[in-house]
Simulated assay, not measured.
Amino acid sequence: MRLPIFIYGRGGSQFIPFLIKDANQTGVARYIEPGNFKYSVIHVDDAAELYIQALQNGKAGSIYHAVSESGITSKAITEAVARMLGCKVGSMSKEEAIQAWGIAVATFFSLNNQISCSKAEKELGWKPFVKTTMLEDIEHGSYKTVF
């Protein structure tokens, strides 16, 4: 199973809480310029269901990508964090991000990472069932109650 960078839901993930904590500390939800880095994401419950289907119906040695949404930009994620917290949105250069977050995190937030789940849909009949998008979950869902 290949999971995307962002696995969201139930207040979990490493990266969404990182952005929320950073915005809480600085008063600004920040993204790396130009903010158009795109990601594929999946809700943790959709990922769990895909694991079950792959174990029950997958072919030995098969690799499946787990995705429920694609094309979500880094700026859109930051804007959802800002709406949730009621703070401003701001951009920073990659050099500023390296200074603030370190090279590994800055590099992570300046990647394009989009994958397709068409093989899982075709071979396993899997479809994501969670209707809450990642941006909705950040702004109004599980992250609002955790932070």
Rank of each mutant, 00 (worst) to 15 (best):
D137K: 05
P17A: 14
G9R: 06
Q99H: 14
S118T: 12
L124S: 00
P34T: 12
N36Q: 03
Q14R: 14
Q14N: 11
K59R: 13
S70E: 14
A80K: 05
A60V: 10
Y143W: 05
F18V: 00
Y143M: 04
S142D: 11
T145L: 15
G102E: 06
F109I: 09
V28E: 11
H140W: 06
T133K: 04
V67C: 10
L85P: 00
G27D: 06
G12R: 09
D22G: 01
R83C: 05
K122N: 13
T133P: 01
A23N: 00
I77D: 00
V67Q: 08
K59W: 01
G35D: 04
T132Q: 14
A80D: 09
I20G: 05
I115P: 00
G71E: 10
I115Y: 08
E33N: 14
C117P: 11
P4I: 04
G11Y: 06
P34N: 13
S91H: 01
A54K: 06
L19S: 05
I115D: 14
N24Y: 11
F147W: 13
L3H: 05
E49S: 09
I77R: 01
A60T: 12
L111R: 07
Q25F: 08
G86A: 07
V44F: 04
E136G: 05
A23H: 00
K122C: 06
P17E: 11
S62A: 13
P34A: 12
C117R: 07
E95L: 06
I63R: 14
L85N: 00
I7H: 04
Y8I: 07
E136C: 03
F109P: 03
G9E: 06
I20V: 15
K59Q: 12
V130D: 06
V81S: 09
K38S: 07
A100T: 05
A104L: 07
D46Y: 09
R83Y: 02
I32C: 11
Q56T: 11
N36I: 07
E69L: 10
F6S: 01
Y31D: 03
F37I: 00
V89H: 03
D45V: 08
I20M: 07
C117D: 15
K127A: 14
E69A: 11
F147E: 05
A66G: 07
Y39P: 02
E33W: 02
S13C: 12
Q53S: 08
R83T: 09
Q14W: 09
K21Y: 08
S116G: 11
A106C: 10
E95R: 10
E121Q: 15
S68P: 08
A120T: 13
Q14F: 10
E121H: 06
V67E: 10
H140D: 08
I5K: 02
I20E: 02
I72K: 03
I115K: 12
M92F: 02
A23I: 02
S116R: 14
Q99A: 15
L111T: 04
T107E: 08
I7D: 01
